[in-house]
């Protein structure tokens, strides 16, 4: 019984920490709380999802635990830098600067990175598969 209580106690904070799940717009991707993540989601859907939603050209998919396990250990500032300036991966994969959308500001790209890393953190805990 004590084990069950401990398990429930561990889960409780997560029920609040886990993002609010909404079904508006594109139900395939979680809506996360906060203006920055809401803005990031809109930018991510417009520019990043085309590759990161499907693993196109080796793009890491936030819903895939293994794709992000090691990336999430890197400083957020490095992920910002890679997304803004572009980046060549160790296997010669290529992340184009600003996802190929030159109209995005640094702040826009950072918000999209924040949304994607928040998604990835979520799916480190919860499976994307039903």
């Amino acid at each position: 019984m004590r084990t069950l209580q401990l398990s429930l106690a561990w889960l409780l904070p997560w029920t609040f920490a886990v993002p609010a799940v909404g079904l508006a717009e594109n139900p395939a991707y979680l809506q996360l709380e906060g203006a920055n993540l809401a803005q990031g989601r809109t930018i991510w859907l417009g520019t990043c999802e085309g590759c990161h939603g499907y693993g196109t050209a080796g793009a890491p998919i936030p819903m895939e635990k293994d794709d992000w396990k090691d990336r999430l250990k890197k400083p957020q500032s490095l992920l910002y830098q890679h997304a803004i300036e572009g980046f060549y991966g160790p296997d010669d994969t290529m992340m184009p600067a600003r996802g190929g959308n030159t109209k995005l500001s640094d702040a826009d790209v950072k918000a999209a990175v924040d949304y994607m890393t928040a998604l990835a953190k979520h799916y480190q805990q919860f499976s994307a598969k039903p």
């Binding site: 999802e49 196109t56 996802g99 959308n101």
Partner: peptide
Amino acid sequence: RRDFKLGD
């Protein structure tokens, strides 16, 4: 067509 973007 001239409105392609990455991932399309």
